[in-house]
Amino acid sequence: MTTNLKFANVEVGTKLPALSVPIQRLDLIRYAGASGDFNIIHWNERFATSVGLPNVIAHGMFTMASAIRVVTDWVGDPGAVVEYGVRFTRTVPVPDDGVGVLLEISGEVTELLEAGRVRVTLTASSAGQTVLGRAQAVVQLA
């Protein structure tokens, strides 16, 4: 693990560069293939609405994978992420309208830990509502 980001240069309240991730149906299809999660609610609108969902929804794990990019982009070495956890609090409906939705992610250092580690708290929202709860990562800095 190597990063140029120094623990001494970070404090509680340090903000990480935010990220906007556009999501269209094709992204969900691609993620289904790469991850092996072919649950029908992530690609078939007819089925998704028949089980009470507003539309096809993004994989929770797609949202989780996208959100941590704020941390890995910041730190450079993805191996610096030693812990990462989220709660899935809202679904992310993805309409087939040629536009899709935007996932907006931001992060902030919320705790300085021992051994050069920091806790980062992430916020992920779509259509103005947060979609992840207790989204936190522990990151090893230099």
């Binding site: 693990m1 190597t2 790469a34 991850s35 092996g36 999660d37 794990m61 989780m64 994978a65 941590i68 890995t72 450079g76 070495d77 993805p78 191996g79 992420v81 990462y84 990562a137």
Partner: peptide, 15 residues
């Protein structure tokens, strides 16, 4: 960066 080969993204293990 000190890794033996390309690194997996933090949530890759879920697959």
């Amino acid at each position: 960066l000190g890794h033996a080969d390309v690194v997996a993204p933090p949530t890759f293990a879920f697959t």
